[in-house]
Deep mutational scan, measured.
Amino acid sequence: MQRVNMIMAESPGLITICLLGYLLSAECTVFLDHENANKILNRPKRYNSGKLEEFVQGNLERECMEEKCSFEEAREVFENTERTTEFWKQYVDGDQCESNPCLNGGSCKDDINSYECWCPFGFEGKNCELDVTCNIKNGRCEQFCKNSADNKVVCSCTEGYRLAENQKSCEPAVPFPCGRVSVSQTSKLTRAETVFPDVDYVNSTEAETILDNITQSTQSFNDFTRVVGGEDAKPGQFPWQVVLNGKVDAFCGGSIVNEKWIVTAAHCVETGVKITVVAGEHNIEETEHTEQKRNVIRIIPHHNYNAAINKYNHDIALLELDEPLVLNSYVTPICIADKEYTNIFLKFGSGYVSGWGRVFHKGRSALVLQYLRVPLVDRATCLRSTKFTIYNNMFCAGFHEGGRDSCQGDSGGPHVTEVEGTSFLTGIISWGEECAMKGKYGIYTKVSRYVNWIKEKTKLT
């Protein structure tokens, strides 16, 4: 034993070699072989497995989906700052455009905790909710729209109204504003409101030439003092309507412009014939205590009207009353817009006519005020429907199939267009061939041609 100890002390290297040989010859039971080890760690190889990531292109799944990435790591994937920024906006807080917040056709661009709407022409605001041009839906104005110097929408209202708090709607500024039905039992019968379409306001006024200088022999019209197929109006439903009495009662109609003036057809009036105007009328054979009678003290036909040349060209006249009318729910003026808007309103496509005229061709006159909704007829169809001249200051309205029309005794009465609950004068009943005849239409004086003249002559002093 002493000898062994001496050998170990003198030859430590020998001992180490012996131990190493023993270990190498022993069977290893701690580690699995290569094949079995792979069965336990069965993990798919990654895209760049075996390579240094710093030297390969980034992978979106590896960089940002398996674990949260930084902007720089995302930049490695896209290799483009702009594309990385677009991805980053949604990656950080989701897609803010998912709810489609942009209105009126706006395009949404996502941002971090926010979004941006790219608005089409005519709109602005956070969600493109603000109209900035009158060309689109009248700028959301209830009545009139004008573009300011910086191309912003400025709404306005006709006389007797003021802008509401929203700067879009119009509200009454006087007790009985024009064009409004205020009798409670008839307010439910107000005709369907007309909503502004998209309009090209630059070209809204037709490029028409008034044929002022045409000389033409007097034409022989049949029954051209021209509501057939209409309905009984309720008291106060058309408070701007008046009836004219002269040699015979209810020979023509008219509309209240203001307390002192009536507008009617020029062919209705004769110099030297006494005319009485009755406002607030409903049943011409009954006294309903809503009527107001006034005498006409002055007749002003349009300066281009000449019955000797043509009885229905420039067929418009103004009547001055001896005493002002007292405005109330049964006696209310009709609204008159400017030339541009009167023309736009007419193009809405349908209007209402009213009167006490004959209820059928050569038949009896109506006792109760009649009204009828009539569609506008395109000019080409209008011209083809008659052998008589249709001037540019006239328009056609009615039904091709016949059966409904204005008729004798309705002449001078109103053709009105309702705009968001307020009625505007767009025409004056003038003439036609018979009444409600198939293929024939009622012919009306186009008020847009005469609004400046009306307003100039009827100013209240």
Results as ranks from 00 to 15, higher is better:
5 N>T: 13
5 N>K: 13
6 M>T: 14
8 M>F: 13
8 M>Q: 14
11 S>Q: 08
14 L>H: 05
14 L>Q: 04
29 T>P: 03
29 T>W: 06
29 T>R: 09
30 V>D: 11
31 F>E: 09
32 L>E: 15
39 K>W: 05
44 P>D: 08
46 R>H: 01
51 K>L: 09
54 E>T: 00
61 E>P: 02
62 R>M: 01
69 C>Y: 00
71 F>I: 06
71 F>R: 05
73 E>A: 00
75 R>P: 01
80 N>E: 07
81 T>G: 10
87 F>Q: 03
89 K>F: 06
94 G>L: 13
95 D>F: 09
96 Q>W: 12
96 Q>A: 14
100 N>R: 12
100 N>A: 06
101 P>A: 05
103 L>A: 06
105 G>W: 05
106 G>I: 02
106 G>L: 03
109 K>A: 10
110 D>A: 14
113 N>A: 13
114 S>H: 12
115 Y>W: 09
117 C>S: 02
117 C>Q: 02
118 W>A: 13
126 K>L: 15
130 L>G: 10
131 D>R: 12
140 R>F: 10
144 F>V: 02
145 C>V: 02
148 S>R: 07
148 S>I: 08
149 A>T: 14
152 K>Y: 11
163 L>G: 02
165 E>T: 15
172 P>K: 06
172 P>G: 08
174 V>L: 07
175 P>N: 08
178 C>L: 00
180 R>A: 05
189 L>Q: 10
190 T>H: 14
191 R>A: 15
193 E>A: 15
202 V>K: 13
214 I>P: 10
216 Q>G: 07
218 T>I: 08
222 N>L: 11
227 V>K: 10
228 V>W: 14
230 G>H: 10
232 D>R: 12
234 K>C: 04
237 Q>N: 08
238 F>K: 04
238 F>C: 04
239 P>L: 01
240 W>C: 00
241 Q>M: 15
244 L>W: 02
246 G>V: 05
249 D>F: 05
249 D>K: 14
250 A>P: 08
251 F>I: 12
252 C>I: 00
255 S>A: 05
255 S>T: 14
259 E>H: 06
270 E>R: 10
277 V>K: 00
280 G>P: 02
281 E>T: 15
283 N>S: 08
288 E>K: 07
304 N>W: 09
304 N>R: 11
305 Y>P: 02
305 Y>R: 09
307 A>I: 08
309 I>E: 11
314 H>C: 03
315 D>H: 01
316 I>K: 01
317 A>R: 01
318 L>I: 05
318 L>R: 00
320 E>G: 03
324 P>I: 03
325 L>H: 01
327 L>A: 04
328 N>V: 00
328 N>M: 02
331 V>R: 02
333 P>M: 02
336 I>S: 01
340 E>P: 07
346 L>K: 03
348 F>K: 08
349 G>F: 07
349 G>E: 04
355 G>K: 09
364 R>T: 14
372 L>T: 12
372 L>N: 12
374 V>A: 11
375 P>K: 14
376 L>P: 04
377 V>I: 13
379 R>G: 06
384 R>I: 07
384 R>S: 10
387 K>A: 10
388 F>L: 15
389 T>C: 06
398 G>Q: 05
401 E>D: 15
405 D>A: 08
405 D>N: 14
405 D>C: 08
408 Q>R: 09
415 H>M: 04
418 E>R: 08
419 V>N: 05
419 V>D: 02
421 G>S: 06
423 S>H: 15
423 S>T: 08
425 L>S: 00
425 L>D: 00
427 G>I: 00
430 S>L: 14
430 S>T: 12
433 E>S: 14
434 E>T: 13
441 Y>T: 06
444 Y>M: 05
448 S>H: 07
452 N>V: 06
453 W>D: 00
455 K>H: 12
456 E>G: 07
457 K>G: 05
458 T>M: 04
459 K>Q: 15
460 L>Q: 13
